[in-house]
Design a protein around this nucleic acid. Structure first.
Lengths: 355, 355
DNA sequence: CTGAAAGCGCTTACAG
DNA sequence: CTGAAAGCGCTTACAG
């Protein structure tokens, strides 16, 4: 591996001049430039990033914004870990992390965080764009200031974003269709439980439901599928609806829960000793996993939320530091979790290295 | 973030002395040592790894050995990519990679590679220990020379290994039991197809079969499960056996293929227009994926082989450079792949960053 | 247009 | 036991 010094010696110039050529900085005569280029090519020169970042004292600031988590079992604890882990990895590269959090139920806290980020004026932003219109305003401001940003979990589809990391909701619903279909007999009825105000991301939930229905339509499978609405996805609400005649239509043997709250349904059914009901839901957080392990939930679709945080930061970092343009979209995986692989669905490369 | 210089100034010593304390090198009086330790603690000092590796001109050599791949669709292409990717990431840290390959069908080529590695005398080795006894000999030599090594894909369970990265075969077979069970009706018969000489890792295959059978035993599910043996897992061999009366017992509607060759069975059944047969197998390489997409294979269990290569090198690197002791075992995930998530089962963090 | 020099933060061989 | 100095490979402000 040749160094800048080697090249400089062979070209009979100073290292400063070689550096200028490498970075296409002006102030080098055409002749020397070409001489140096040739040598660079000849030796397949790659600069030592370590030495480069060390000398280049440039500091980058990256701001992140995701919902708060109350405990380690929350969904958003995982992206949080991913962010932290990525920052840990790159901290020696002069990247300063500013992590912000907001309350999912509090629009104001979201606005506040966005304002703080704008005040900070970072080089890049990684965030989960809840509250569509507010996010759109924010993004416009970022654009006008030329601040790069990456969306995770939720796609805002605005112009100017560097990349989005999240799941294809329609397809994941489609997958749930298959799993619930093979978990039940064709003559049994199915139901989808929907919450009227799904704060977290109703676009995604609608798309999951569409995908689910599409599975049966496309494959021309005739099944009775009921949509059940609850005001709020709580134990009492779910219990009230289900006790109230619905389960008397006792052919309902399978439930699809397009939000991450399937454990609540499982809890209710368990309390009623209804053990022959099948449930397919989303997100492998601890509450859901407990019921999966018990057998009350059949399948969960996980999207590796850790990775959404991790990849978000890594993409931004490589863009800022190495000018590497990422893909516009990184599809989060649709990881099928069931009782039999419950301890083996996580990928070591991301999780295990965490210090 | 404080630097060594900052600490040195505050302690009124030279940076060299601080460095000695940080690395517990001898030649510092108890008194100054304590003074410096306190400051280090106070400021939560973490040394800049970039600067450290740059100054520390130490070079590490890591040798790797895995089977060759003939095309990008081969199973072993993925670990190969993982190795390459990991080396790419750490190349600036003074790590020199020596990648060796051997022919799965040629014991001699394996021995040759091992000898070359011993001659090279690297600081660490990452390898897939095929050919048990030969590997055991090799490992003993590594131990006597104090060379660290990591096993991937296959566990050799010898003393002295730093870590193993691979799947829990029994449990993955158990998972296949569940998947084939729910894909078929209880009254239908099942079969397991085994090759008499499974070069690649018969231990693992036996464990998968045990796990598969155990699923039904443990849950007291009574099903007829036949074991079918072929001399070699080729299209004609499989065809001969299945045509030969076996399928006349036409209740066999589900096959478990504990090797990675399920596409061969799928190909045969397709050619026979037997479309109502269900197959569960291993490894999401291209041949298998093609039949999964067609619907001829129901489920594949993937183990993220990319990651086995990647994590193997990363573990060794962190051990050599940062003295970080890894876990003895990293469980590869059991990724359930089916037609509906076939384009969404890979994890972005590992695959997408590949240059 | 070009070079010499200083510096990024850490490490080490040498001198005392 | 301790410090001053040189160096890892790259970058940049300054001088010419």
């Amino acid at each position: 591996m040749k160094t800048i010094k080697d090249i400089a010696e062979e070209a009979e110039v100073s290292t400063g001049t070689v550096d200028r050529v490498i970075h296409d900085r002006p102030g080098v005569s055409k002749k020397t430039k070409e001489k140096i280029r040739k040598l660079l090519d000849k030796y397949d020169f790659e600069r030592n990033i370590l030495a480069s970042t060390l000398a280049l004292k440039k500091k980058y600031s990256i701001a992140t914004l995701i919902p708060t988590y109350k405990s380690k079992t929350d969904f958003w604890y995982e992206p949080h870990k991913g962010l932290k882990f990525a920052f840990q990895e790159i901290k020696n590269y002069g990247v300063k992390a500013y992590r912000f959090y907001f309350d999912l139920l509090d629009h104001e806290s979201y606005k506040n965080a966005l304002n703080q980020i704008l005040e900070l004026n970072p080089d890049g932003v990684v965030f989960a764009p809840f509250f569509y219109n507010t996010s759109l305003d924010f993004v416009e401001k970022l654009n006008s200031r030329n601040i790069a940003y990456v969306c995770i979990n939720i796609d805002i589809e605005a112009t100017g974003h560097l990349s989005f990391i999240g799941q294809d909701s329609f397809q994941s619903g489609y997958l749930c269709g298959k799993l619930l279909d093979i978990s039940t007999e064709r003559k049994q009825h199915l139901a989808i439980i929907l919450s009227k105000k799904d704060i977290d991301n109703h676009h995604a939930i609608a798309a999951r439901v569409d995908g689910f229905m599409n599975y049966f339509e496309q494959r021309k499978i005739k099944r009775i599928i009921k949509k059940v609405y609850v005001e709020k996805f709580g134990l009492s609400e779910v219990g009230a609806i289900l006790s109230n005649g619905l389960m008397k239509d006792d052919c309902i043997k399978g439930f699809f829960v397009p939000s991450s709250a399937s454990y609540i349904l499982a809890k209710f059914l368990d309390s009623m000793d209804m053990t022959d009901i099948h449930i397919v839901g989303f997100d492998a957080h601890q509450y859901n996993l407990d019921y999966l392990r018990k057998g009350s939930i059949d399948f969960l679709i996980d999207q590796n939320p850790f990775e959404q945080g991790y990849v978000g930061v890594k993409i931004l970092f490589e863009y800022l530091l190495l000018k590497k343009l990422p893909k516009l979209k990184y599809s989060s995986p649709m990881i099928i979790v069931t009782k039999e692989n419950i301890d083996h669905f996580k990928v070591a490369s991301a999780v295990e290295f965490l210090v």
